[in-house]
Design a protein around this nucleic acid. Structure first.
Lengths: 218, 218
DNA sequence: CGGAGCGCTGTGAGCGTGCTGAGAACATCC
DNA sequence: GGATGTTCTCAGCACGCTCACAGCGCTCCG
């Protein structure tokens, strides 16, 4: 397992490198944002430990940049800030886990193991299907770049469909996942909302598979 | 997105349920360990929020049990303990993320989003036979790369045949598995549908074994 | 070579499934 | 209080899937 540590405090960087090497990882260190980004792009790392406060380029921007370039290696973010919103921001911009300094080495190791166990995240922070894109964090949907306004229910339905793009999703599955269980809603609501969605996002993208369910273009 | 919250403090459980529902999730709550395990097994949830200290069965044991039963839904653990080793334990026993109480609702939400983003259900393999391929998840069939559109019954028949490619499948077997058992349908329907299928996927692939049944080219 | 099964296919009736518009119940905003 | 928006139910409609039936062709036997 090959890890990249991007951290400008040399003492911390060295400590991490030594500790992780003792655990059997191969570890490289970058001291600035741009260097880290470059190495992450081409180094073939299995995971990355990334400080938020970096000279040249913040950790947030590095993750965002990597994700837009379709690099999906697991990223564990480190930050001296401890405001909760920072943590939320870090995760929403594409990091996979977040630790605030000071952190315990044992926790770091456990989290890194958990990250590697999961493997590279397959899915981008923003879901796309055809010319449709959905940003779960911002709760926004746009079609061919044009923003579409959806109601809560329409949004929940579309999100579920997009997370299963290309697969056939049955009406009962949709009832279970998009509508609250226990509610005995008429199964017809699904058809009604599919109709609403089609009106807003376009008819072609959401296909009916008669007798089986619906399929969003993969 | 359908979530399961396993938490015995009813006030916290209700607060979580209400908050997450406001975000558009479908949320169920279990108040004890055994109930939570049972619901996680059969509820078809997209993710799970799991308290460590539970009456009946600890959160650790629940995760471990689920993992040994090959349930891979994302698990976010909650704990009042804050010793670092607990956190490491939680992650090592199979949870995907870990929050210590008291936690901020914003962080919980961001982490839950990150978990769902990662959640990559591995698709079942695509079935192939000759130049035919069938994708069970997408309910798609193509012949030599060209998509073929099948009705529900035709699809069910072909799927059964492909799962037994190379074997001779009798008409009564097909009646039992593709048509509802017990239905007294004329045995002739099988012949009719084999005819439809041959028209769509090609005559050569589906062979008649006179007196015994049909065989799809292996 | 001829007959008896067995399998194939065209036709058409019935009805299941999904789509839509109208409207009721409810919440929210001004 | 009225206007607006959201969620959901209901009923009507149309398409096309499913299946029974009947007649024909093919195959395997004596």
């Amino acid at each position: 397992m090959r890890l990249l540590v991007v951290e400008d405090e040399t003492r911390l960087a060295l400590a991490l490198q030594r500790g992780l090497q003792a655990e059997g990882f191969a570890v490289d260190v970058a001291g600035t944002g741009p260097a880290g980004l470059e190495m992450a792009r081409h180094g073939g790392y299995d995971a990355m430990i990334l400080d938020v406060m970096l000279p040249g380029l913040s950790g947030y921007r590095i993750v965002r940049q990597l994700r837009t370039e379709e690099h999906w290696l697991p990223v564990l973010m480190l930050s001296a800030k401890d405001g909760e919103y920072d943590q939320a921001d870090g995760l929403d911009c594409g990091a996979d886990d977040y630790l605030t300094k000071p952190f315990s080495y044992v926790v770091l190791l456990a989290r890194m193991r958990a990250l590697l166990r999961r493997g590279a995240p397959q899915r981008p922070a923003v879901l796309t299907a055809g010319d449709l894109s959905l940003d779960p964090a911002g709760r926004r949907v746009s079609r061919a770049g044009v923003e579409v306004s959806l109601t809560a229910r329409e949004y929940a339905l579309l999100e579920y469909l997009m997370r299963h793009a290309g697969e056939v999703v049955s009406k009962t599955e949709l009832l279970d996942h998009v509508w609250d269980a226990g509610m005995d809603t008429a199964p017809n609501v699904v058809e009604v909302y599919v109709g609403y969605l089609r009106r807003k996002i376009g008819r072609e993208l959401l296909e009916t598979v008669r007798g089986a369910g619906y399929r969003l273009a993969g």
